[in-house]
């Protein structure tokens, strides 16, 4: 079902943070695959390492964090240890990224159209007229009405949803092969969130760009992703097609996450929760890291690390997955 050589293949990725005198692994052996044109969701709580995993692909990790081992093979090249110059080129052209806060990615003193124009002229052999026409096309694609007029607007003159659209237009203007979307709708209102999700869906359909979509809301992921990877305490604990994760989740954490999503239904009474907190990144982990919060945990879970259960297209790291 998956092509032999995916667009992105992450193998055994470890990312560590300096805590006092020693390096602590925050991401502890992540394997991830994204095929060309595929939309993969990465879900987890804050501190699960999902954002770090995403940031490690274009190698824009925050200060104090480093990739300690593993391979990130993108389009046939291992990005880990790639010379800075080659990496910069990739970053500008093949891998694009959008963030939760578009203001950090947009220059406040330059009109948005100009920012897209400059980026296009730097990265591509494209003429003045062609670039302008393409910008108009892109802005229309991300759902901005009257793109010609909007091009002259400064970022602060746009609403949050509009900025997110502009940032996406800027990100896809270089015809990237992979778009990394790090919680792009978390700061937005529900109605605007629905629009932005619709826009991302349209972009992947019309431009055929693969998307790595990071969110803490599984329902949102299900709306546009083909596959989903659930992360907990720096590891992928379950990974499968969206349909089978929803229909038959194998990991108790996934089951509990699904239960927690506030839904519009007739239920009343206490909201379902996952008790406790995820482990701190500097704590020592013995056995299954989810065991202290798991209502199905047995002694085995608390003492020894769970095996990986596999089925074609489905993977779960749990003693009781089978």
């Amino acid at each position: 079902m998956m092509p032999a050589d995916p667009l992105l293949r992450i193998d055994g990725l470890h990312i560590s943070f300096k805590a006092g005198q020693q390096w602590r692994d925050v991401v502890r052996g992540v394997d991830l695959r994204v095929a060309a044109g595929e939309v993969v969701g990465l879900v987890g709580e804050s501190g699960s390492g999902k954002s770090l995993t995403a940031l490690s692909i274009p190698q824009v990790l925050p200060p104090g964090a480093r990739i300690s081992s593993g391979r990130i093979v993108f389009d046939g090249t291992d990005l880990v240890g790639l010379p800075r110059k080659a990496m910069n080129e990739r970053r500008g052209r093949d891998i694009a990224m959008i963030f939760q806060d578009p203001l950090t990615a947009l220059n406040p003193v330059i009109p948005v159209g100009r920012q897209i124009y400059d980026s296009m002229r730097t990265h591509q052999a494209i003429g003045h007229k062609a670039a302008l026409a393409r910008i108009e096309e892109l802005l229309a694609l991300v759902g901005i009405r009257h793109p010609r007029e909007r091009m002259r607007a400064y970022p602060h003159e746009l609403s949050g949803g509009m900025r997110q659209r502009v940032m996406t237009a800027l990100a896809v203007s270089s015809n990237p092969k992979l778009l990394i979307a790090d919680e792009p709708t978390t700061a937005l209102d529900v109605t605007v969130q629905a629009q932005v999700i619709g826009m991302l869906d349209r972009i992947r359909r019309e431009l055929g760009i693969a998307v790595l979509f990071i969110s803490h809301n599984l329902d949102l992921i299900a709306e546009i992703c083909d596959r989903v990877c659930v992360m907990y305490a720096g590891k992928v604990v379950e990974s499968s097609s969206v349909e089978s994760v929803f229909a038959a989740p194998r990991h108790p954490y996934t089951r509990q996450l699904l239960r927690c999503i506030p839904r519009l239904d007739a239920d009343t009474g206490p909201m379902p929760t996952i008790p406790g907190l995820p482990p701190r990144f500097d704590s020592d982990l013995v056995g299954c890291p989810f065991a202290p919060r798991c209502d199905e945990a047995s002694d085995r879970c608390r003492t020894s690390e769970p095996p990986t259960w596999r089925e074609p297209g489905h993977l779960a790291v749990c003693w009781d997955a089978a």
Binding site: A194, A222, E223
Partner: peptide
């Protein structure tokens, strides 16, 4: 109504889309 329609609804939302 629009507010209700905008709430993400997982697989249901996917098929709707």
């Amino acid at each position: 109504r629009m507010l209700i329609a905008s709430v993400p609804r997982g697989l249901a939302g996917r098929s709707r889309r």
